[in-house]
Simulated assay, not measured.
Amino acid sequence: MYLYFQLRSPAKKDFPSLFDITAAGHLLANEQPSDGEREVEEELGLTVPFEDLAFAGVIQDEIHLPDFTDRECCHVYLYVHQEEQMNIQLQKEEVAGLYRAKLMDAQQLFTRKCDNMQQEVFEVDEAGERRKESKVVCVQDFVPHEPAYYQHLFQAINQFLLQ
């Protein structure tokens, strides 16, 4: 089982060229969490019906950096994709690549039981060919979410897998 991460575009204002959750966005004041499915379509070119998503909870997340504080209530949903390939079309202004790591490796990394993990590219080029690339990454290569964010996420994933 794999967990997918996006590589944020180097053009992004916040956290350029860092890895983050697969698809993310901000809801407008008049939107509901179900409207967030548009982010998956915009960023990855995937149409995922809201009914196919499993609610993993709302995670309160704060990122504190010099000259920057980000407070969010993250409505997190899981999506299980059974096929080896996904027909993705990346929104280059937002996402520079899509990578995957073994779920167990990601859990080990974010619970600090190991220092790094291997990720492989899951991006398809314009010719429909999958690029072959692998990267060794560490926690510093990711958007600096609080450890509690990842604890909640992995707890939700593990509960979902037990169903």
Results as ranks from 00 to 15, higher is better:
160 F>C: 07
41 E>H: 13
82 Q>S: 13
95 V>A: 03
66 P>Y: 07
55 F>L: 11
41 E>F: 12
126 E>W: 10
102 K>T: 02
19 F>G: 14
118 Q>Y: 12
10 P>I: 03
90 L>D: 14
92 K>L: 07
140 Q>P: 04
76 V>D: 00
126 E>H: 15
79 Y>F: 15
141 D>I: 01
85 Q>W: 09
32 Q>P: 07
81 H>L: 11
95 V>P: 03
109 L>R: 08
152 H>A: 03
149 Y>A: 00
26 H>K: 07
107 Q>C: 15
44 L>T: 09
129 E>A: 12
107 Q>H: 11
33 P>F: 07
2 Y>R: 03
109 L>W: 11
21 I>D: 07
157 I>W: 07
82 Q>C: 11
101 A>P: 01
154 F>A: 08
75 H>V: 09
135 K>Q: 06
9 S>I: 06
111 T>Q: 07
118 Q>E: 15
54 A>H: 06
23 A>G: 15
127 A>F: 10
122 F>Q: 09
88 I>K: 14
139 V>H: 00
120 E>Q: 14
87 N>A: 12
31 E>H: 06
17 S>R: 02
149 Y>K: 00
106 A>M: 11
14 D>E: 05
63 I>V: 13
135 K>F: 08
100 R>M: 07
26 H>S: 15
11 A>M: 08
80 V>S: 04
127 A>D: 15
109 L>D: 08
163 Q>L: 12
159 Q>C: 09
102 K>I: 06
159 Q>M: 15
52 D>M: 01
55 F>R: 06
102 K>A: 05
41 E>K: 08
103 L>E: 11
36 G>N: 00
146 E>I: 01
